[in-house]
Design a protein around this nucleic acid. Structure first.
Lengths: 156, 156
DNA sequence: TTAATAACAGACCATTTTGGTCTGCGATTA
DNA sequence: TAATCGCAGACCAAAATGGTCTGTTATTAA
């Protein structure tokens, strides 16, 4: 539930790897797949999509491979997710054009969910790849320790 | 991707319906399923879980049904999601105890993802059912219009 | 007391999504 | 011109999800 797909995980791992290279350094799929034990074929697809979306630059030749196309601070996590999974949407009748949605006429929850979705998209868009990679490890292993939004949850 | 399940949709619809009843009014499954065209059997399961988790009160008798167990402002959206889907987790190696995760030893992305997850959980926990139900319709149909966090996205 | 009502419980199947594989093509350069 | 590497898409397997079916238990009104 609300889970990221493995492909997004792979994308983020690969991008993290590429970010650690020297400027303009080209890395091929095999290196990355070995570093993280990711099946090469599927990693290939993931990187292909990232390159099609302008996040990676591909070098289509022997000794070729991939490199970041733009600085890590100019790529948002939302960009990555969108590149891999199409688009983020917490609604099950995603884009509002789902004609088969039985609840469409008296759906009380659509616009509230859109608000929540908007907030989630905002925070994903607000976090750059650079920021993402340089996150401090969370302390204590409990999620609440890492929250940096203002205020406190009101429940429990 | 990052999608809520239909069961959560059904739960939120039912809760919304129940919130609109008079205080302590009991409603049975059939009424709700008819109101929103939800298959009764699956709605039954959803409501059962909500009642098991203390969100709904069940009245196990003829003319029985369900009612809210506590005021809508004391129930968070996260509570509802947790009740239905177990728990929210954007990580694909959800709870960190996934022994089959190949990346576990050199996973660069775990803690950054936990930070993001924490933020998402925070905002879901911060929104009460009452607030959820009384959300204004989003204007213009575009998600960005409904965002009320400070600042602006930095990309695009 | 009992029949009707409505929740409870869990096995079960179908559909969809996702993860992953296989096969072959295209571009570049040593 | 052959080796290396990315590109592309069909394809299959596994898992998650949505939904169905069968039967049981609690309560109450007749």
């Amino acid at each position: 539930m609300l889970k990221l797909t493995k492909k997004v995980d792979y994308a983020l791992l690969a991008l993290s790897f590429l970010s650690q290279q020297e400027e303009g350094q080209v890395v091929n799929i095999r290196e990355i797949s070995e570093a993280y034990q990711i099946p090469t074929e599927i990693l290939a697809k993931v990187l292909q999509r990232l390159s099609k979306k302008g996040i990676l630059q591909s070098h289509h030749a022997p000794k070729g491979g991939y490199s970041l196309k733009k600085p890590a601070k100019n790529v948002s996590i939302l960009d990555v997710i969108n590149a891999i999974d199409g688009s983020v949407g917490i609604l099950s009748c995603s884009d509002g054009h789902d004609k088969t949605c039985q609840q469409i006429d008296n759906c009380d929850i659509r616009s509230p969910l859109e608000r929540i979705q908007g907030k989630i998209m905002w925070l994903l868009e607000d976090m750059s790849l650079e920021e993402f990679i340089h996150s401090e490890p969370t302390t204590g292993g409990v999620l609440h320790g890492s929250i940096n939004l203002p205020g406190q949850p009101r429940y429990h």
